[in-house]
Design a protein around this nucleic acid. Structure first.
Lengths: 326, 326
DNA sequence: ATGAAAGCGCTAACAA
DNA sequence: TTGTTAGCGCTTTCAT
């Protein structure tokens, strides 16, 4: 591999001048620039990333922390980011936190040692106090995930509006007995605000019996149906909170002889590929994953280039996709 | 960030000695080693990866080239690799070739510039002649993908055995009119050998009309059914070559009023999560993705440490998962 | 067993 | 506008 010295020698100029050309500095006469370029060409020279990185000049590797890449939402997010990153000349490292605080911190630490130049945080299990110190070592931007008042560039879904729209769709279909599933808990969750707002506007009382917490996969969905079957007063519709939960609900409901949507209407969240595979096809709320990923990456690149992060809280809208389960 | 000099100063020893401790070299007295360790501890010192990398000492970032990460097979492969890599202290970079020769080469080139220390090739669209030169710059190992006679460590599925087993299952169910789908072409493909072997053993003639090439997604599966419906002599079973193709087949067949498996038996390939979501649930051939990824990573680590690759061609067995479509 | 010094490939301060 | 020189943080001869 040719080095900068080789190029200097071959072009009859100094390393400095070559460096200037590489980095597009001013004050280099066109002729000399040409000479350098020619020498680089002839030697098939590429600057050593390791050396440039050591000098703090190279910033091209971006880490993205997700919970689990097998979660289709994250899969598509990583896909979108990688596609754009490639075009822009960046490499992306995939980090799965597995919802493990330790693991997340280990990955954040890569920023400290410059193993990665910036991190897109798409999921986090740590408190802001724990994360904050890392911002000193390199840019961190939020994508999908969001912590209030951090001042970090954020791209996220309008969760309130999304769940509100989904609920209004169910209510518009005449439902008043609506069950609600969520991956986490009830409070402090944006999405739940939209849910409750819709209920209130429609003058429907919140029935805590129909709230299912910690449901985030197919099994969770099945559990929901089993629980509902045991009730005297059953809901006629369910806001699943996720397509996979919705899938579990549909599977188990059909198993139990319920007709969908006649006996039970179901609305998912995410619009994953499986939504169209289900029978009946799933009505769901589509997230603008691609856009989310791309804007987050743009934020990252800006931060990398400017050396500072701009406080931008970008909120994207979801889109209701009506199919057959409502 | 503390540097090696700081540690040297604090411990009252030379940088050389510190370096020796870091790299576990012999000829360092236990007491001095202790001193160094203590100083490192106190300064919270971590060697600079960039510097070590420049000296050719650090090898911790592994790239994995896949076609598209949204293909669940690759998703799970990347997942398996990342999980193990984390434990072993490596970082994985995800590269999507999108079946684009150029893009694949760009990513392979990262090896040249040491942006990545080794590459796990899980899919390739380039010829061996094109890839081979890159082996000079860092280890390349095959995983899932496979090119004959390269001498590179390979972990792959026993495709012949897998398709043979799937076919024998259909034949055992009494089918003799079996359609066959494949993502690529017919010849030069291991999987097709098993298919033809099973036919031959059962004394069934190959009906070229029932061979469908270039089918690799849901749409492809739908096309297959539409084509079959136009035939006078229709197959009673279909080997889908992939779960997504199988999904398309099932969807379209149901649409057309065909009963599954009575009118048309379907067997998939991969055992993706969607297999259990389909109605009826998909009989399919499960690939040992996790094991495949882990063994490939082990090969990579070995290569990284030894500086050379051992020629190992590891072949893993698939497992037939019988559900409701056969 | 230990250290001084040179050098990996690059950039930056300072001169010229 | 260009070059000289001194590092960045680490490893590696080569002495001692």
């Amino acid at each position: 591999m040719a080095t900068i010295s080789d190029v200097a020698k071959r072009s009859g100029l100094s390393k400095t001048t070559v460096s200037r050309v590489i980095n597009n500095y001013p004050h280099v006469t066109p002729e000399k620039r040409e000479k350098v370029l020619k020498a680089m060409e002839e030697l098939a020279y590429t600057p050593s990333p390791a050396a440039r990185r050591m000098r703090g000049q190279l910033k091209s590797s971006i880490g993205i922390i997700v919970t689990r890449i097998t979660n289709p939402f994250f899969t598509y997010l990583v896909d979108a980011i990688e596609q754009l990153a490639y075009k822009k000349g960046y490499q992306v490292m995939v980090f799965q936190s597995n919802d493990d605080r330790e693991k997340e911190l280990k990955y954040l630490s890569l920023l400290k040692t410059k193993q990665v130049d910036g991190i897109i945080l798409a999921a986090t299990v740590n408190e802001w106090e724990t994360i904050e110190p890392f911002t000193e070592y390199g840019p961190i931007v939020f994508c999908n995930e969001f912590i209030k008042g951090t001042g970090l560039p954020t791209v996220r879904l309008d969760e309130v509006g999304a769940s509100y729209e989904g609920m209004m769709h169910l209510i518009g279909r005449g439902h008043t007995k609506i069950a609600y599933c969520t991956g986490g808990v009830l409070e402090g969750n944006e999405r739940n605000i939209g849910f409750q707002r819709a209920l209130k506007e429609a003058g429907i009382d919140l029935n805590l019996q129909w709230i299912f917490l910690n449901k985030y996969n197919i099994d969770g969905g099945k559990q929901v149906v089993r629980a509902m079957l045991r009730m005297d007063d059953r809901p006629t519709a369910v806001f699943a909170g996720g397509d996979e939960v919705a899938a579990g609900i549909i599977l188990e409901a059909k198993e139990a002889g319920l007709r969908i949507p006649e006996d039970l209407a179901v609305i998912g969240f995410d619009d994953q590929p499986l939504a169209e595979l289900l029978d009946p096809k799933l009505t769901t709320i589509r997230q603008p994953v691609k856009q989310m990923g791309e804007e987050a990456l743009e934020n990252m690149i800006t931060a990398l280039n400017s050396g500072s992060v701009k406080n931008a809280d970008r909120i994207l809208s979801a889109e209701l996709v009506v199919r057959q389960t409502t």
